[in-house]
Each structure stands twice: as structure tokens, then as C-alpha cells.
Amino acid sequence: MGRFTRAAGCYLVLLTALAALFAASLAVGSTSIGIADVASLLVAGPSESTASQIIWQIRLPRALLATILGGALSLSGFLLQTFFANPIADPFVLGISSGARCTVALVMIVLLGANQIMTPWMSVGAAMAGSLATMALVLMIARRVKHQSTLIIAGVMVGYICSAITNFLIAFADDQSIANLQSWTQGSFSGSAWPDVALSATLVAMVSVLVFALSKPLGAYQLGEGYASSVGVDVRRLRLAIVAASSLLAACVTAFAGPVSFVGIAAPHLAKRGVGSSRPLVVTPACLLTGAVFCCGCDLIARTLFSPVELSVSAVTAVFGAPIVIMLLLKRRVRS
């Protein structure tokens, strides 16, 4: 069938783009390292030389984290869009990222006040608590609103409230904490460390496998809740799985990179266009790849455009992502 060739072609293009951007992320920076050198440094393994340190301790974990979390963000957006049957839902717009950031900031300030170091597990745990709490709030609102755009507005408002609380916390925190929080609250992949990479890779891989395994019921759910239950889908369990999976993905991203805007809307949209279908079976891998490419590319731009000044990655994703959201809004208006 032509469409499977198309999906395969799309995956191939995305993989090539990802490989190219990944290589560029390792090679380009304040110290340029040639591609051949990068390759040999990677093969040689970590060593004491400066170039090796740059690759192994700074650029490689950062590029990996951007790739993994980009995919996570995109998949989380796709799940939320399926859940709410709304193409402009994503963890950032619905305030889930901001909720997660709020709890992480809280835990961070409390712990730093006690002169303790925050482990990756703690950040993810705190972010998960925050994203689940915000998700619960958004779901409560969603049950009462009939109109889909009202849901988005409600989500944005929830996001503002959480950001306001975070800002309060920062205002009352001491100087050392603020220095830690500042870059992270903007959304950035800088300061990525190997333990972060290991934990996020494990979690994202697990959730991705789960989502892929749920392709069949998700596909039925896309055609309506009533229909899904009539063909034998346990809709309550599926909804629970979607909420848990999307919250965990969003929490992962927020814990390690802060809130990253619009990737969750733009990347799944591009993925669906790319494979020419919205069937979860083909879209799930495409979503992961598109998100990875999107974030890897945006992080490269954030890092290098005004080097040595580094932009927040959210600023770059917004520049590319927001127009896609506006386009989707306009398209919906025309249809309804």
C-alpha cells in the first residue's frame, strides 16, 4: 500500500534530519570541532582532553536530552490532542508544564534552603505531582465547558496562575537559588548531565512503548468515546492511561528542561501531515521523531544564533511553533 511507503519515507527523512542536526549539535559551538574529530572522540570514549570533555560532558548529553525530551513533548501533545479531541492542546497550553514547574521550584527552593542537592528522581517526582495536579484541575474545568476553545483559555489561565506562584517563590528565595532557577524557568537544555539523560531516556522509552501498544484502542477513541466503548474498549482505563502517560512525559520535560512551548502542538501536527494519517500506529513513531528533530534544531539555534549569548529554547520553539498554532486556529474557524 502507498501509505506505508509514505510513512516509511517520512521516517527515513526524519531520521536523516535528526542525524544531521545531532551531528551539528556536537560539532558546532563556541569551540568548533570537526565532524571527523567528533566521530573519533566518540569512538575513543571519554578522556581528559578538552575536546573530549566538551563532547562527552557538555554537548553529547545536551543533544541527547534535547532529542529525548523533544520526542516526549511531542508525544505528550499528541496524547492530549487525542484525549480532548482538540488539535491545539498540549502540556504547555493547558498549563500542565507550568504546574509541574511550580512544584519543582517549590521543592528546589525548600531543598536548596536546607543545602541539599536535588537528584533527577526528585525533580521528576515533583514535576509529576505538579503535572498531575494541574491535569486534574484542567479535567475538572473540561467537564464543565462545552466549547473546546474555552478549555484552551482555561488551560492558559491555569498556566498563568502556576507561573505567578513560581514567581512568588523566586522572589522570596535567596540569591543562590535564583541563580539556579533563572535559566531553567525559561526553558533550556543547558546544564544537561548524564544522570538526567539516563532517567529521562528510561521513562520516555517506557511510556513510548506503552503508547505504541495502545495504538489500537487509541485509534478507536479518536473516532469517539461512544464508538470506542461499543467495540469493546475499556474507555475509563484508556483515559486514565492517556492522562498518566501524557503527564509523565510532560513532567519529564519540565523537570529537566523547564517549560518548552508549542513543540507539543507543532510537532504532532507536522508528524500527521508527514505520514498523511492520524492513525496512532504510524503517528506515534513519527511524533517522537518530529519532536526530536524540532527540539534538536531549536536548541542548536538557541545555542548558536547569538553565541556566546544563549537564548532560551522556548523562545526559539515559539518562533517556529506559534505560527503553526495560529494556522490551525484559522483552519478550524473555516471548518466550523
Binding site: A85, P87, Q222, L223, G224, G226, Y227, S230, K272, R273, G276, S277, S278, R279
Partner: peptide
Amino acid sequence: ALFTRLPHTELL
């Protein structure tokens, strides 16, 4: 079963 609401689909 077939109920009144027609599903909104995207790229299906």
C-alpha cells in the same frame, strides 16, 4: 451501534 454524532476525523 451507530449514534447520531458523526466523528470529527483528521487525515483519516
